[in-house]
Amino acid sequence: MSLLDARGLTRHFGGLKAVDGVDFDLAAGEIHALIGPNGAGKTTFVSLLSGRLPVQSGRITLAGEDITGLPAHARVRKGIAYTFQITSVFPGLSVFDNVALAVQGGRGSARDLSRAVEAALYRVGLETLRRETAGTLSYGHQRLLEVAMGLALQPRVLILDEPTQGLAAGEIGAFKALVRGLVPEVAVLLIEHNMEVVMDLAQRITVLNFGRVLASGTPDEVRANPAVQEAYLGA
């Protein structure tokens, strides 16, 4: 049973068909990677899912409920969390306040705000830095804070846009363990360039090219797909 389901999603910019009739489904509890060459429409596609861009045609459902017309903030409250490709924490606020904003805006009722914040910080390992100003954290820590904010929303679907970009090799290992620990409680949609991370984490992969789905399946199936090899893996 798919948790998040998209049918015929379309978004054109002038003559550019950024997303052109994409069908996609995300199952509960899976890690699903979205890959494709630059300009394939990945970021536009997840913007349509998260509501940052309105769809031109198509339909999105979350656990059977039609959310196509909902604005972004309402989708967040329904359980679709999006972490930004470019780190986008509130640099002037404390780490605590950053996460607290997510707790307040998310699905949980969060009676006990500070406990919910602590819990999210603990999962990413930033619990000792909660009083720091977010802008003073190292880049890797800011990425973790971004993930903590995503988690604090208590999402059903967590969209991670290029989460390992700019991380050091050592940090990537810890990050993979973190993402693995999120499922099956949360379904993760991972947009990622690092193939090693994708092949290691994802249970299923969808490949986009020129705004269309080129292939979809397990990592082995996708790897074996000749169209993918030709268009993307450059074989």
Partner: peptide, 24 residues
């Protein structure tokens, strides 16, 4: 208050605040 925190979040980065479930 919690509302005050949301106000500042809107001032600092409205787009990010929206993606935290805040209705601007």
């Amino acid at each position: 208050s919690r509302f005050g925190r949301v106000m500042v979040a809107l001032r600092e980065n409205e787009d990010r605040a929206r993606m935290l479930g805040i209705n601007p």
